[in-house]
Design a binder for these strands. Structure first.
Length: 476
RNA sequence: GGCCCGAUGGCAGAGUGGUGAUGCAGCGGACUGCAAAUCCGCGUACGUCGGUUCAAUUCCGGCUCGGGCCUCCA
């Protein structure tokens, strides 16, 4: 089995993955701030790191995947003040929506999904440690992290403090000793959520929550930290600084992985730009849209930017149609431990181990599809086999089993194939009757009648496929 | 303005110091009563200018263009 290798943002290099504890791999990914529906860009890290988690679970005895819910944030407060809806209602509703949307993308839940508000005490502990260690100071009701107390500040995101100041045009709060200092704790008035603390009633700054939750569930040192590339600075830089300074001698995450942005019309999709499409908008295209979007994401390498278009979504759907067509054929089931099936599946997944090269893995899935089609429908697999460099001669059902197994690690092709192709209206019996009538007409060589029936079904959005083993149908 | 990343055929998108994957679209063929599905085959690409090398799309540098971060952001 090929070893795993990932591009580490912290070193800007591809590195062989060696977990701190090979018996227990630990992964942390930044989760959503629950103040509004998730958009397409929010979905990308969830899908990408879902694939990573599936891969890790396949390779290691135990994996703990933590993804937080940020349910205390000034955007949430602002939303509540605008709409009058209580904060708890906004966060509960948005969290439920998020879960539903991610399930529609076939993302598995993380092992732990802590909420920021459930970890305030941990954050306070961290802040106290930072003050005690000389890395933070209280000023004007706030507690700030002192950037110049940490020599490596800026190293993760690859920028010096001078560089950061050079371009910064933000106004600097008067209570900051250094313009780069960031807030760990800030005071809350009576109209805002707040918790008692040594510095008065207040609420946490943005970055401290992830440090607290990673510490609680994964310890001071763990294997992989993931998130969108736009979080690299300042969020991850600050998170790292806080955690390392709170626990001298620790290193926090060994590997940092960042996914590229989802673009629309060549520009980053974001709520502040207003050019976003929510998952709800996307899923309204049909029951196929969730998996089609997942495939669309996995057809591009996770670190590259990806431009979303509806055409590409339809293209991905068409590909899934082809895969599911094969899986509806009622193929023989190979033995559980069939070595050829295992070999083919392993081959297809090989690229995923190389910094999540899902586009190449998807291409290999297509080769397995061709092998199965050749085995069951007929034709020649010479082109595929020469490309693959093997002399596989799979019997009917073997390549399909390998396909399902490999696709499962990508979170694809796990729907019921018949539902995928024929789900929707409850008119299956009528369609089957029409197909039987057409077959009778064909048997009588009454082509006009047979074509009339087919045209009628086509008008209803039903596509017929005549195969060696009979006629099947699907919805267009 | 500072820092970082990218530029592959009509579109999307892997990969490699030496015959340039794959998908969609297009074209031709097999199969089919005709289609659809399936299989086979074909065409057009490595932004630009230099450098290193026997050889560069692949390594190095300049340029152009695009994107990201520097402010909330997946």
């Amino acid at each position: 089995m090929t070893e795993l290798a990932f591009h580490n943002s912290a070193t800007r290099q591809r590195e062989i993955f060696a977990p701190i504890d090979p018996q227990h791999v630990r992964l942390y990914v930044c989760g959503p701030t629950v103040y509004d529906l998730a958009h397409l860009g929010n979905a990308r890290p969830v899908v990408v790191f879902d694939v990573l988690a599936r891969l890790l679970r396949r390779r290691f005895p135990r994996v703990t995947y933590v993804r937080n819910i940020t349910d205390v944030d000034d955007k949430i407060n602002a939303r509540s003040q605008e709409s009058g809806e209580p904060i708890a209602a906004i966060t509960a509703r948005t969290t439920a929506d998020f879960h539903a949307d991610m399930a529609a993308l076939n993302c598995l839940p993380p092992d732990e999904e802590p909420r920021a508000t459930g970890n305030i005490d941990r954050m306070i502990t961290l802040i106290e440690r930072l003050i005690a260690n000389g890395h933070a100071y209280a000023a004007d009701g706030h507690v700030l992290f002192a950037v110049n107390s940490y020599a490596d500040y800026g190293r993760l995101s690859g920028r010096s403090t001078e560089e950061m100041l050079a371009g910064a045009r933000i106004e600097v709060a008067p209570y900051k000793r250094d313009p780069g200092d960031f807030v760990l704790w800030k005071p809350s008035g009576d109209d805002l959520p707040g918790w008692d603390s040594p510095w008065g009633r207040g609420r946490p700054g943005w970055h401290i929550e992830c440090s607290a939750m990673a510490w609680r569930y994964l310890g001071t040192d763990f294997d992989i930290h993931g998130g969108g590339h736009d979080l690299l600075f300042p969020h991850h830089e600050n998170e790292l600084a806080q955690s390392v300074c709170a626990f001298p001698g620790s290193r926090f995450a060994r590997t940092w992985m960042h996914n590229g942005m989802v673009l629309v019309n060549g520009e980053k999709m974001s709520k502040s730009l207003g050019n976003f499409l929510t998952l709800r908008d996307l899923l309204a295209n049909g029951p196929w849209a969730g998996e089609a979007f997942r495939l669309l994401l996995l057809k591009t390498h996770y670190r590259s930017a990806i431009d979303y278009t509806l055409d590409r979504l339809h293209e991905a759907r068409g590909e899934l149609d082809d895969f599911y067509a094969l899986l509806t054929r009622g193929l023989p089931e190979p033995e559980e431990d069939d070595p050829l099936v295992a070999e083919m599946a392993e081959w297809a997944l090989e690229p995923v181990a190389d910094d999540l090269n899902t586009p190449l893995a998807v291409a290999r899935l297509r080769d397995l599809r061709t092998l199965e089609n050749v085995a069951t429908v007929g034709g020649s697999a010479t082109a595929v086999l020469s490309r693959v460099g093997r002399n596989w001669q799979p019997a009917s059902g073997q390549a399909a089993a390998a396909l399902r197994q490999a696709a499962g690690v990508l979170g694809l092709l796990s729907a019921d194939p018949r539902t995928w192709r024929q789900g929707g209206a409850d008119d299956g019996a009528a369609i089957e009757a029409a197909i039987a009538a057409r077959l009778a007409a064909r048997a009588a060589r009454n082509w006009a009648e047979a074509d009339r029936i087919r045209a009628e079904l086509t008008a209803q959005g039903i596509v017929l496929e005549d195969g060696p083993s009979g006629t099947t149908w699907r919805r267009a």
